Lab assay of single mutants.
Amino acid sequence: SQQIATAKDKYEWLVSRIVKNHNENWLSVSRKMQASPEYQDYVYLEGTQKAKKLFLQHIHRLK
């Protein structure tokens, strides 16, 4: 749906803004993002596993 696509774009923007180093780990980054509406919306719509998967894809691109 359009809502999910929009939430994903915003979440990816948030991840790219916060995660600048491929050594970052999911636990510390997800804690930093918990207060962000972009993170909350995406997790609400798609779940934590998908959020983690996108985070890991971003990390992989930074290597």
Results as ranks from 00 to 15, higher is better:
residue 49 Q to I: 10
residue 26 W to Q: 07
residue 18 I to Y: 08
residue 40 Q to M: 09
residue 57 Q to K: 15
residue 58 H to C: 05
residue 30 S to W: 11
residue 6 T to V: 14
residue 52 K to W: 03
residue 42 Y to D: 01
residue 7 A to Y: 04
residue 14 L to T: 04
residue 12 E to Y: 08
residue 9 D to K: 13
residue 52 K to D: 03
residue 20 K to G: 06
residue 33 M to S: 01
residue 3 Q to I: 10
residue 31 R to D: 08
residue 57 Q to T: 08
residue 14 L to C: 00
residue 2 Q to M: 13
residue 18 I to H: 09
residue 63 K to P: 03
residue 9 D to I: 13
residue 17 R to Q: 15
residue 54 L to H: 04
residue 61 R to A: 09
residue 52 K to Q: 13
residue 33 M to D: 04
residue 19 V to R: 02
residue 4 I to P: 06
residue 28 S to A: 13
residue 27 L to V: 13
residue 53 K to T: 14
residue 26 W to N: 07
residue 17 R to D: 04
residue 11 Y to V: 01
residue 9 D to C: 05
residue 48 T to E: 15
residue 29 V to M: 08
residue 32 K to M: 10
residue 5 A to Q: 14
residue 22 H to D: 13
residue 22 H to E: 13
residue 50 K to C: 08
residue 3 Q to C: 10
residue 61 R to H: 12
residue 60 H to N: 15
residue 26 W to A: 01
residue 3 Q to N: 11
residue 38 E to M: 06
residue 57 Q to V: 07
residue 17 R to W: 03
residue 11 Y to D: 00
residue 56 L to K: 12
residue 19 V to D: 02
residue 25 N to H: 08
residue 39 Y to T: 02
residue 16 S to K: 14
residue 26 W to P: 00
residue 49 Q to S: 11
residue 25 N to Q: 13
residue 12 E to M: 14
residue 46 E to F: 08
residue 59 I to E: 01
residue 3 Q to W: 10
residue 33 M to E: 00
residue 15 V to M: 14
residue 33 M to N: 04
residue 57 Q to L: 06
residue 21 N to D: 15
residue 43 V to G: 00
residue 23 N to H: 12
residue 61 R to L: 08
residue 44 Y to E: 15
residue 46 E to G: 03
residue 59 I to T: 09
residue 7 A to D: 05
residue 11 Y to S: 00
residue 15 V to D: 00
residue 48 T to H: 14
residue 28 S to V: 10
residue 62 L to R: 04
residue 22 H to G: 13
residue 57 Q to P: 01
residue 43 V to W: 01
residue 47 G to A: 00
residue 42 Y to W: 02
residue 6 T to L: 12
residue 33 M to Y: 05
residue 35 A to N: 15
residue 63 K to L: 06
residue 36 S to H: 15
residue 4 I to V: 10
residue 54 L to C: 09
residue 59 I to Q: 09
residue 38 E to T: 04
residue 49 Q to L: 10
residue 7 A to S: 05
residue 2 Q to R: 08
residue 8 K to V: 04
residue 28 S to Y: 06
residue 60 H to A: 15
residue 47 G to H: 10
residue 38 E to V: 09
residue 43 V to N: 03
residue 45 L to M: 10
residue 2 Q to N: 14
residue 26 W to C: 05
residue 62 L to T: 03
residue 36 S to G: 03
residue 21 N to Y: 03
residue 61 R to Y: 07
residue 34 Q to S: 10
residue 16 S to D: 10
residue 31 R to K: 14
residue 32 K to H: 05
residue 41 D to V: 06
residue 11 Y to R: 02
residue 23 N to G: 10
residue 20 K to C: 12
residue 62 L to H: 00
residue 30 S to M: 14
residue 18 I to R: 04
residue 62 L to K: 03
residue 59 I to H: 07
residue 20 K to L: 11
residue 47 G to V: 01
residue 16 S to C: 11
residue 29 V to R: 04
residue 60 H to D: 15
residue 21 N to V: 04
residue 11 Y to N: 00
residue 58 H to A: 06
residue 25 N to K: 13
residue 27 L to C: 13
residue 17 R to F: 02
residue 63 K to D: 02
residue 62 L to M: 13
residue 14 L to G: 02
residue 38 E to F: 12
residue 34 Q to C: 12
residue 51 A to P: 00
residue 15 V to Y: 08
residue 34 Q to M: 11
residue 8 K to W: 01
residue 63 K to I: 10
residue 54 L to K: 01
residue 59 I to W: 02
residue 49 Q to E: 15
residue 54 L to P: 01
residue 43 V to R: 03
residue 43 V to P: 01
residue 26 W to V: 04
residue 59 I to G: 01
residue 32 K to R: 12
residue 38 E to W: 09
residue 41 D to C: 08
residue 28 S to K: 09
residue 10 K to Q: 07
residue 4 I to K: 10
residue 2 Q to G: 09
residue 27 L to H: 15
residue 49 Q to P: 08
residue 51 A to G: 01
residue 41 D to Q: 14
residue 44 Y to I: 13
residue 15 V to R: 02
residue 15 V to H: 05
residue 39 Y to A: 04
residue 8 K to L: 04
residue 28 S to P: 04
residue 2 Q to I: 09
residue 55 F to W: 05
residue 41 D to L: 08
residue 1 S to F: 09
residue 10 K to A: 12
residue 11 Y to P: 01
residue 51 A to W: 03
residue 42 Y to V: 01
residue 14 L to E: 04
residue 59 I to N: 03
residue 7 A to M: 02
residue 12 E to A: 09
residue 55 F to G: 03
residue 63 K to S: 10
residue 62 L to Q: 06
residue 27 L to R: 08
residue 29 V to A: 15
residue 7 A to W: 04
residue 19 V to N: 01
residue 8 K to D: 03
residue 53 K to C: 12
residue 40 Q to V: 09
residue 22 H to K: 12
residue 28 S to M: 09
residue 8 K to F: 05
residue 51 A to V: 00
residue 31 R to H: 07
residue 13 W to V: 14
residue 50 K to I: 01
residue 63 K to C: 06
residue 36 S to V: 09
residue 3 Q to T: 11
residue 45 L to W: 06
residue 62 L to W: 03
residue 37 P to K: 15
residue 12 E to P: 07
residue 62 L to E: 05
residue 57 Q to C: 05
residue 18 I to G: 01
residue 40 Q to H: 13
residue 32 K to G: 02
residue 29 V to Y: 03
residue 28 S to R: 07
residue 40 Q to E: 06
residue 40 Q to C: 09
residue 56 L to C: 00
residue 60 H to I: 07
residue 60 H to C: 14
residue 51 A to S: 01
residue 53 K to P: 01
residue 58 H to E: 05
residue 22 H to F: 12
residue 25 N to C: 11
residue 14 L to H: 02
residue 26 W to T: 00
residue 51 A to T: 01
residue 40 Q to N: 11
residue 12 E to H: 04
residue 39 Y to R: 01
residue 55 F to C: 04
residue 1 S to M: 09
residue 11 Y to M: 06
residue 38 E to G: 04
